[in-house]
Amino acid sequence: MAGSQATERQAREVASESRPGADWEPVIVAFLCNWCSYAGADSAGTGRMVQPANVRIIRVPCSGRVNPRFIVRAFQRGADGVLVSGCHPGDCHYSTGNFYARRRLLVLKSYLEYLGIDPRRFETHWCSASEGQKWADIVRSISETVKALGPAQTLAGL
């Protein structure tokens, strides 16, 4: 299974990156919808806005595509924080995808907290294609929050 070997290797790389130290930097996995937030992140980049390099972006068709398992898996494989961002409610490219996502992620957030995972490590945002500045702010704020919290060892080290 070449695919799963590659996944294991990536997981090890992510895990080794998040080993604590003086110059420790958190690893944050971001699931961005193709239509708004990914383009928003792109516009932050082309606008040359300064943002921390802690966020690893995974592009998904819609925030409704984000299976809650992705988020738990990211934590298991060594992510210190997870971010999901989609179009603003009402602006979904597929009309209603982010409304479904909102319900699901609302329940998920409460559940992660219940399982003993700090809820500040998981954030959901709505960011449109033109909101490059907002994206930069989101990245800055979550990076600072997660850095202050320290490495998330709980799930990965279970």
């Binding site: 409610p89 209603t96 409304f99 479904y100 909102r102 319900r103 699901r104 992620l105 609302l106 329940v107 957030k109 809820p119 500040r120 954030e123 959901t124 945002h125 709505w126």
Partner: peptide
């Protein structure tokens, strides 16, 4: 979880 309402609580940046 197979439906939604416009007035569902919003979780943007919720901590």
């Amino acid at each position: 979880l197979g439906q939604f309402a416009l007035e569902d609580p919003d979780l943007e940046g919720a901590v």
